[in-house]
Amino acid sequence: MNRIWPLLSLVILLALAGCGSSEVNLDEEFSMKLEVEELEGVNQEEQAFSSSEHEGEFWLANFIFTNCDTVCPPMTANMARVQREMKETGVEVPIVSFSIDPENDTPEALKEYGDLYQADYQAWDFVTGYDQETIERFANVSFMVPASKEEGSDQYMHSTSIFLVDKEGFVRESYSGLDVPLEEIMEDLEKITD
């Protein structure tokens, strides 16, 4: 019994030391780890954009197109809610909405679209300026989600998720962009930005 006490004391000390650490173990917290390839384009202000410019910070991402007549309007409205909530709680995480219709989604079209949702462009980029094949591959490989034009239509099949990307450029979590779990997203963001 006397030999157990020192061992037990050591275990308790290590556990308490772990509780005091503010470093979050992302592999334990999140179930995903998909590497985001570099993607270059332009944003709604016609400024050069590269996904690599977010290296060293967490960011949120989704896929949209301005001519979408089904899921994109509610998804973008929900992303705007997330942005407002972040502002109110003092959490600063950039947002990137990638257009999957680069042929029609010019920077001007994306700016007009973002204005509809009162997007704060200081922390939200709407990105275009690549070709169709590039964005489809980017969505398929980096996020493991579909992105393709629907046959005989001007509509596109794409993910309705909001993705959390970590400082090293790995997708760590996916949330519904339609039935948005605002509380869960905010809890995760507060956890990683503390």
Rank of each mutant, 00 (worst) to 15 (best):
I100D: 01
Y156C: 04
I12P: 05
V82A: 01
V71L: 15
T106V: 13
D131A: 05
F65M: 08
N140T: 08
L34W: 13
L189V: 04
K87L: 12
W124G: 01
Y121Q: 14
G56L: 06
Y175G: 01
G56F: 05
Q118P: 10
Q47I: 06
G114R: 00
D188M: 09
F65R: 07
G152D: 02
L39Q: 00
E183S: 10
E190T: 10
L178I: 14
C72I: 02
T128N: 00
A80P: 11
Q44R: 03
A17D: 08
A109C: 11
L39A: 02
V42E: 10
K87C: 08
E112L: 14
E38Y: 03
D101V: 10
S52N: 14
S174P: 09
L16D: 06
F30Q: 02
R172G: 00
P107L: 04
S159A: 08
L39I: 04
G41V: 07
I135V: 14
F143L: 04
F138D: 01
N78M: 06
A119G: 02
T160S: 09
V71H: 11
E150V: 15
N25S: 14
L8Y: 13
F63I: 08
Y130A: 02
A77T: 13
S31N: 12
V145A: 06
N67L: 14
I95R: 03
R137S: 15
V71Q: 12
D101R: 11
I135N: 03
G18V: 13
L34Y: 13
T76N: 07
N67T: 15
T70R: 09
P73Q: 05
I4S: 12
S51Q: 05
K111I: 03
D179W: 10
A61I: 10
Y130H: 03
R84T: 15
E103F: 13
V91E: 00
K33T: 10
E183F: 08
P73S: 08
S148I: 03
E187C: 02
F143Q: 01
G129H: 06
D27G: 09
S159C: 06
S31I: 12
P94W: 04
D188L: 07
L14N: 08
T66R: 03
R137C: 12
D125I: 07
V141M: 06
G152R: 05
K149V: 06
C68T: 00
E112W: 14
L182R: 11
N62L: 07
G129W: 05
L182D: 07
N140E: 13
E103I: 15
E88L: 11
W124A: 02
H54Q: 13
Y117E: 01
S153M: 05
T70D: 11
G41N: 05
I135D: 02
Q122P: 02
A80F: 10
L14I: 12
E151R: 13
E150G: 11
E136Y: 12
I162A: 07
S51E: 04
E35I: 07
G56K: 05
N104T: 15
D120P: 02
D27A: 09
A61N: 12
Q83V: 08
V127G: 01
E183P: 02
K167L: 05
D27M: 07
F65T: 10
T70Y: 06
I4T: 14
E46R: 09
V82L: 02
T134V: 14
V91C: 00
K149N: 12
R172N: 00
E46K: 11
L178T: 13
K191R: 14
S159T: 11
